[in-house]
Amino acid sequence: MKSTVPDTTAPYRVLFVCMGNICRSPTAHGVFETMVVRAGLGKRVQVDSAGTHSYHAGATPDARSQEHALKRGYDLSGQRARQLRASDFDDFDLVLAMDWDNLALAQAMCPPQHVRKLRRLAEFFEQHDSAVVPDPYLGGTQGFEDVLDLVEDGCTGLLRHVQQQLRAPWADPE
Rank of each mutant, 00 (worst) to 15 (best):
Q163I: 08
A104N: 14
G78S: 12
A57Y: 05
P11T: 12
A131M: 13
R13T: 09
A86I: 09
T34H: 07
A28P: 02
F124Y: 15
D135A: 08
Q142F: 08
T8V: 12
Q107T: 01
D101C: 07
G73K: 10
G140D: 08
R82L: 10
T27M: 01
R119G: 06
R85I: 09
G20K: 00
Q127E: 11
D48P: 12
Q164N: 03
Q79R: 09
S65T: 13
S54D: 13
E145N: 13
R82K: 13
V151I: 15
L150Q: 14
V95K: 00
Q79S: 15
G30F: 01
A106D: 04
Q127P: 04
K43F: 13
V162N: 07
Q127M: 10
A39Q: 06
M35N: 07
S130G: 02
Q83L: 13
A86G: 13
E152N: 11
A39M: 01
R82G: 07
F16I: 12
M109Q: 02
P173S: 02
Q163F: 01
S130N: 10
L15D: 12
D153A: 08
A168C: 01
P112F: 08
T4H: 14
G154A: 09
K43Y: 04
A104Q: 13
A50V: 03
Y74E: 08
V133A: 10
C18S: 06
Q163H: 04
P169R: 00
G78N: 05
Q163M: 05
M109W: 01
Q165H: 06
Q83S: 10
R167S: 10
R13D: 03
A50I: 03
G154F: 04
G40F: 06
M1W: 12
V147N: 05
V5F: 03
E67Q: 12
K43H: 13
P173F: 05
H53E: 12
F92D: 01
L138Q: 10
R120I: 07
V31R: 02
T8D: 14
V5S: 14
D62S: 10
Y137V: 02
F125L: 06
M109D: 06
P136R: 07
F124S: 10
S3Q: 10
K117T: 00
W100P: 05
G139L: 06
Q164E: 09
Q66C: 12
A59F: 05
P173N: 06
F89K: 07
F144C: 14
T60L: 02
F144W: 00
D99I: 01
M98Q: 15
L103C: 11
Y12S: 06
Q46G: 13
W100T: 11
Y137A: 11
E67K: 06
L159P: 11
Q79I: 14
A50L: 04
T60F: 01
D93N: 15
D129Q: 13
R82Y: 11
Y74R: 07
P11E: 04
N102K: 01
D91E: 15
L70N: 11
G30Y: 00
C110S: 02
E33F: 04
R38K: 15
C18G: 04
L76R: 02
L105K: 14
D172Q: 11
G58H: 11
S25L: 00
C23K: 03
M1I: 08
E152S: 13
E67I: 03
D101W: 00
H128K: 08
R24D: 08
Q163Y: 02
A50G: 09
